[in-house]
Design a protein around this nucleic acid. Structure first.
Lengths: 234, 234
DNA sequence: GCGAGGTTGTTCTATATTGGAACACGCCGT
DNA sequence: ACGGCGTGTTCCAATATAGAACAACCTCGC
């Protein structure tokens, strides 16, 4: 088990930090901005940006403003693309049958990030769950469903103790729920999705808070989870 | 105008090539595979991978297999996120009103990549247009709509001459169409979307080939395009 | 028109980083 | 046990990089 020391390659690490900074930025940044945010000399940032631009991950507008390039999206499409491909039709079916936004989330370190999401037509209120959305695993139904699959030893250090009982209960029932956790006035139901040789995942729906049969929703989600699991042989 | 010589930063460039290779890979790769594909020494690939892993862009399974990490998806969510945010509701509305998959595509070098896509419930046949999908700009309705916005001098060198007339016609009509181009038996209608200080884009729908009023579809798309354009002040 | 401020692009050298090879370890199938 | 295959580590020379100082280019203001 190699220890988690400093990033072995300084240059690459800085280049990636540029991407991270740009992803958070709301507007095009100047080279100076980037250099400042990274704490490196402007000249270094310049060379790194040129390289990123060369690969299409960064784009410069007429004023020299720096932005993330569209090819980032193309790269991200390769993330677990077999899982995405198998899950998409299932998510669509669930979304339409239940009339709720349905999405697939996976574990990333101690965060829960949604990979694909499908919005139904007949939503009471449209709920958008954009791919790439992140929040701590310890929060929300998908997070708890994922924790269901993790031995307690691998839980994030900052997990509050009460959570343990909640997750244990979810594990028994086979699904997790939440309301007003990640977004106020929204309820969510999620089932765990364990795949061979892959990190833990979850299939979930969100809807505006209202009386709903969680058991029934969970049953539908579980069916889709099984379908995906079988399709991927895991 | 700085010339497009070799990538200024060799290390960063290699790191990105690793990401590209992994995005194309259908299965987890070994370090040796990566090193071989890049043409670098295994030890170098090792260090680069460690750095990528440190940033969560790469994940290693129990067998040491290397895959793209979920955080890539989070990074990609930052690509033109204001455009994505403004376009999403419009795409959803169009998809539901027309009963066709509706998506937003942008220009990346000489390729057309789709950023967001929304699938409707009542599709005759479900058509999935996954975000991140790429193909040459010279092909398909969105591509031609985008070419509408580009001076001919900036067209890709390999653009066939007949295309010029087609695009000119599309520019006059205000929309472009295609059938059986990128995927057999599919038709597509697209309108250009020019935004201030941003690359050319297009809003498009796809549907299975059948009699349809392209003019009417285009009118609806144009309305959404205008809405997005005004929302972004461009 | 002209100069000031701010930004990008270029060139240079000492230094830290990297590239590559050889080696140690663990695992699995024959 | 053995040999193949894979990872992780160490080493040194070679080189790519970091950082600074400088030049060119804008726009904005007068």
């Amino acid at each position: 088990m190699p220890d988690a020391g400093p990033p072995p390659s300084q240059t690459l690490s800085r280049g990636i930090r540029i991407l991270e900074v740009l992803a958070d930025a709301r507007a095009p940044l100047t080279i100076d901005d980037v250099a400042g945010l990274l704490g490196v000399h402007r000249s270094s940032a310049y060379r790194l940006l040129r390289t990123l631009e060369h690969h299409g991950l960064v784009v410069r507008d007429a004023n020299g403003g720096v932005t993330l390039g569209a090819r980032m999206a193309a790269l991200a499409a390769g993330v677990a693309h077999d899982l995405q491909a198998e899950a998409l039709p299932e998510l669509t079916a669930v979304a339409n049958e239940l009339g709720m936004t349905c999405f697939l989330a996976v574990l990333d370190h101690d965060e829960c990030v949604t990979l694909v999401s499908v919005e139904p037509r007949h939503a009471v209120a449209p709920v958008a769950q954009r791919p790439g959305t992140r929040h701590p695993v310890t929060v929300g139904a998908p997070g708890k469903a994922i924790l269901t699959l993790l031995p307690h030893a691998q839980w994030p250090a900052d997990a509050p103790e009460p959570l343990r009982a909640t997750v244990a209960e979810a594990a028994q029932r086979g699904f997790a729920t939440s309301h007003d956790e990640v977004i106020p006035s929204l309820e969510s139901v999620a089932v765990p999705l364990a795949l061979r040789g892959r990190g833990p995942a979850a299939i979930a729906v969100v809807h505006v808070a209202s009386p709903a049969d969680h058991e029934q929703i969970a049953a539908r989600l579980t069916a889709s989870a099984s379908a995906v699991r079988e399709a991927l042989g895991g």
